[in-house]
Amino acid sequence: MIFKRLFSVTRSLKDSLILIEGSKGQINPASLSTVSAATQIGEPITALVVDPSIAEGAAKVEGVTKVLKTGKPYEHYLSEQVSPLLKQLIDGKFTHFLISGSSVGKSILPRLGALLDVQPLSDITKVIDGKTFVRPIYAGNALATVESTDGVILASVRASAFAPAKEQDAAPIEEISAEAESGNSAEFVSEDLVTSERPELGSATRVVAGGRGLKNRETFDALIDPLAKKLNAAIGASRAAVDSGFCDNSLQVGQTGKIVAPELYIAIGISGAIQHLAGMKDAKVIVAINKDAEAPIFNVADIGLVGDLDTIVPELTEKI
């Protein structure tokens, strides 16, 4: 009896907690990759949802053994409200906490680290063991293998480095009373989300990206959109294209934008600065179309075509 209790205590002490993100019944695909990363740590996984509408979906994610849900949603995932809740849940009960490296994850995780006096690991791309992880530094120009000496491991997970978890039979769902609050929070005022019929950039299997070489918004739309549509690809962009107003900020691929690793990445009129490469060089097949044969993008491209994109891109769109 005593033995059994001790055993159950040590078990529960090794569990991983994950925050699954999403809203309106939809789980953020990056959270599915986060569960995959947690599966590699090998301990039972408890999923927390602070938006009850995704609780049932979370219970069906392969690897999740239990779902904790809050009674009412924590609107907009404000870090001042979610971090104290996480602190309360984790303290002494979980050894690992993972969250996706999304804008929500990046906002919450460090604040939680400060509350728990733990140094988190950002954007892990590989699990070596329960304490040791690989993460990219210097815009992906170096990979650091890092061992944490903290009692609790806090990490955000780079979605493009882990395949999304599949479906399973539903795990049990438990409602928790959630009262933790910092009492000192920013307030949500409004939001302006970009609506697109194209797949979401972060999780798309194909990406067509445009850069400065497209010259203006009209050419960007005229050349990139039809090709992306034909390939059912997401649209991406370099910083130059975004800064010049060719498309929305949220489409930027790179060190400071989205990190993607699709099956196919077509870079059109993109020179390939290191900050851009940081966001896409893990794509399986990279195609570069550029008029400058010396552009650095050709050093990472599997297939390169030197020439005028005004003629090449429409021809490619037509022939695919």
């Binding site: 990279i286 990472v300 491209a301 599997d302």
Partner: peptide, 26 residues
């Protein structure tokens, strides 16, 4: 709190090919 065990170059991508036209690209 974090011990850096090693820092490495990311795996290099294999050299790609240049093609002449759209048909070869496809």
């Amino acid at each position: 709190r974090l011990k850096v065990l090693k820092v490495e170059e990311p795996p290099a991508r294999q050299a790609g090919v240049k093609v002449e036209n759209v048909d070869q690209l496809i």
